[in-house]
């Protein structure tokens, strides 16, 4: 079984946010309003945040999404197993099981799980643009980045229909697919021949808040030499 991981090369990343909008459209993440944004209820699964980095004079933009931890703090506290570590290594979120207790949002040190405080709304004309592969989450449910898990399921089905094994390149999340600067590398971290494994082994590699021991499978490559 593959162990899916994502490497973000901050030296290549331009902070263009193409990944943010790709994620939004792919996963039917509802739009905010000026008022809901001002209230801190912007719904995004991936967001650009400004962070301080050693050796940098200025805060640099860093794309932050669910870190897909190997030891996820969020799953330990979920009373209904709505969020759990799947065999693919992806931290899954089963919306139908979620009771909205928000224990997981509090337990997540990266603050990347978002709660639906209101029912998701789109103008009627925009409901046509929903991705039919992804369910819309109702009010009272927590949601987050799933590495576009539905794409993995579709890729598996396609590979099975074609009578072959799933190849690493069959499955790419929407953010990786669109990144204009080619800053995102995705694949099986356990495949030593994969580009993502090679990138993760770079001396520039680090994990966000790695001192917490959550063992994220999102790995960043710092800027500079």
């Amino acid at each position: 079984m593959a162990r899916w991981g994502l490497v973000v090369d901050l030296d290549r990343c331009t902070g263009c946010q193409a990944c943010v909008i790709a994620c939004k459209h792919e996963n039917n993440v509802p739009f905010s309003t000026p008022a809901s944004s001002a209230a801190g209820r912007l719904m995004t699964w991936i967001q650009l945040v400004a962070v301080e980095m050693p050796g940098r004079d200025h805060r640099v933009p860093l794309p932050l999404m669910c870190q897909q931890c190997d030891r996820p703090p969020c799953t330990d506290v979920c009373p209904t197993s709505a969020t759990y570590l799947s065999t693919d290594g992806i931290v899954a979120q089963v919306y139908a099981r979620c009771i909205g207790c928000r224990y997981c949002t509090n337990a997540c040190p990266y603050v990347v799980k978002v709660f639906n405080w209101t029912p998701p709304e789109w103008p009627a004309s925009m409901q046509g643009m929903m991705n039919p592969d992804v369910s819309v989450r109702p009010k009272g449910v927590v949601e987050k980045c799933t590495f576009c898990h539905h794409r993995l399921m579709i890729a598996r089905e396609r590979a099975k229909a074609e009578g072959r094994e799933l190849a690493s390149e069959d499955y790419v999340p929407a953010c990786v697919q669109t990144c204009p600067a080619e800053a995102l590398t995705f694949g099986d971290l356990d495949d030593q021949h994969s580009a993502v494994a090679a990138a993760a082994a770079s001396p520039r590699a680090f994990q966000w808040m790695e001192e917490l021991g959550t063992k994220p499978k999102v790995i960043y490559l710092r800027e500079g030499e």
Partner: peptide, 22 residues
């Protein structure tokens, strides 16, 4: 030009097609 990549504005063209104020 893009070799399969697209910027944020390019992707947002989908919202223009569905713009409720068109």
């Amino acid at each position: 030009i893009g070799r399969g990549r697209l910027c944020a504005k390019g992707q947002a063209a989908l919202e223009s097609y569905f713009d409720p104020d068109r």
